[in-house]
Design a protein around this nucleic acid. Structure first.
Lengths: 162, 162
DNA sequence: GACATACCTGACTTTTTTGTCAAGATTGCT
DNA sequence: AGCAATCTTGACAAAAAAGTCAGGTATGTC
């Protein structure tokens, strides 16, 4: 349950693009240099984002990448989902240790637990947009604390904080 | 951003133990057989849970594992945290592509984003206890929908659902 | 129309995670 | 005390993910 390398890189590339003015674009080399990662790696991530319709690319001499939509309309949950599916090509990875075929089907008890954990995570991430991340990072704190359950005390959550 | 194999196995083992009556215990072999995983693998996971104080073990002929605390006092966030740290031995994995030393320190902009995403996830998971998972799995749905932000419409979240 | 720039894509190498094995240590029973 | 059952622990092998490389395709400029 952690942010994978590819997810983090994708997020960083998108943040770079979100800070641009209208009509501006960044080339693959520029993005890679600013984030300190290889151009090949950035290219792979941006290709995924392009395929998913989050960014648009222009080829040729004056080419580059830019956001396909306003940053305020791109949710964190969407980004994570796209970059996750790039890893596990299929849609339903079958873990070993399951007597039948797939953990996510059937009535094996763990199914709904796993699925719902993923849903809980996605719900939390869908409350945040790219635009909220570009400005001051302090804003994120504010947004995140709003989605906290109203009937749970903060002390319990802080106790188990990592 | 997904549940790793080790996390899922740990969760399954804990659920087995949570269903026991007071004073009862399960041996490593019993747990492994019920979950369809190897005894060696179950042993590794249970050792982590034991070291973290979530389960207690008894050696000898009539030995076995049992929960160290009531299931109602064990939060999902705690479980995930323990099993995560078993993977990445240290506490702060340094991703490549960062000009300085670690993503989680310094003012590199992405730091607070990553940290806050993790906090959001943990906050969602801390609202669920083991006890809530043992009975009917339908309850999980109910609990999870409570922690949803009151000012976000469900349609947007469903649109990006995986 | 030729050249330079920049994105696209599949194969390959390295690293990390996952799972297994085997030997050691502890406890209860006879 | 001795034996059998059980947990403990470090080292190793297999699988998956992450990252790199090189060749291909498209676009704009001179």
């Amino acid at each position: 349950m952690k942010v994978s390398a590819q997810e983090e890189y994708g997020l960083r590339c998108l943040l770079q693009l979100a800070r641009l003015g209208a009509g501006e674009a960044l080339t693959l080399g520029q993005i890679a240099e600013r984030e300190g990662i290889s151009q090949a790696n950035a290219g792979k991530v941006l290709w995924l984002l392009n395929k998913a319709g989050l960014v648009s690319s222009t080829r040729g001499t004056k080419g580059g990448y830019q956001l396909a939509r306003p940053a305020a309309e791109i949710r964190l949950s969407e980004i994570i989902k796209v970059l996750d599916e790039g890893e596990v090509d299929g849609h339903c990875k079958t873990y070993p240790g399951v007597l039948d075929s797939c953990v996510h089907t059937g009535d094996c008890g763990i199914r709904s637990v796993i699925v719902n954990v993923h849903e809980a995570v996605e719900r939390a991430l869908s409350a945040i947009t790219l635009a909220q991340l570009t400005g001051s990072e302090r804003n994120v704190d504010t947004v995140l604390h709003q989605i906290q359950s109203p009937r749970r005390s903060t002390s319990a959550a802080a106790e188990g904080a990592q």
